[in-house]
Amino acid sequence: MKGQIDKITDSEVLFEQEFKINGGDFINAGESSSKLKNILKEIGINTDIIRRLAIAAYEAEVNVVTYARHGIMRILIYPEKILLTIEDEGPGIGDIDQAMQPGYSTATEEIREMGFGAGMGLPNMKKNADIFNISSIVDKGTKLEITMNLNDKNA
């Protein structure tokens, strides 16, 4: 894995960790994002980047729990950027443009009553990421890529 990424980005991975996310596990949803946040704090990443990445990670984690069977959240830290990927096996998203619309959600009434499924997840991720990529195959799964630049002068 590390070798492949190095070839693509031509850059050294300083830190790498994976978190497993189980579909339907609302009790533990968000714990991986909290662990991730603590890791970034320990490393000493800029607090604004941590804040934005934690928002994106939580939303992505909750999406896996809400819609998919299971998923992997992976953090890769490079000298110049942080790459967070969330890959799940699940129903996928047929119309990504529609899914990106704030307020659009396919969540059930039960999920909405818990305060999830407001249709803000994907827009929140995009808003907080420096670069946001989403790809999906129906009946296979969804992959999200969230990139944070570490060398911005304003960061």
């Binding site: 949803a29 818990m114 305060g115 999830f116 407001a118 803000m120």
Partner: peptide, 23 residues
């Protein structure tokens, strides 16, 4: 709405809600 709280609540804030589930 949990997405709203995640986006807008800040460190050290008191959070008022009617939700009582573990998340």
């Amino acid at each position: 709405l949990l997405s709203d709280v995640i986006a807008n609540c800040k460190e050290g804030y008191i959070w008022i809600t009617l939700q009582g589930h573990p998340n």
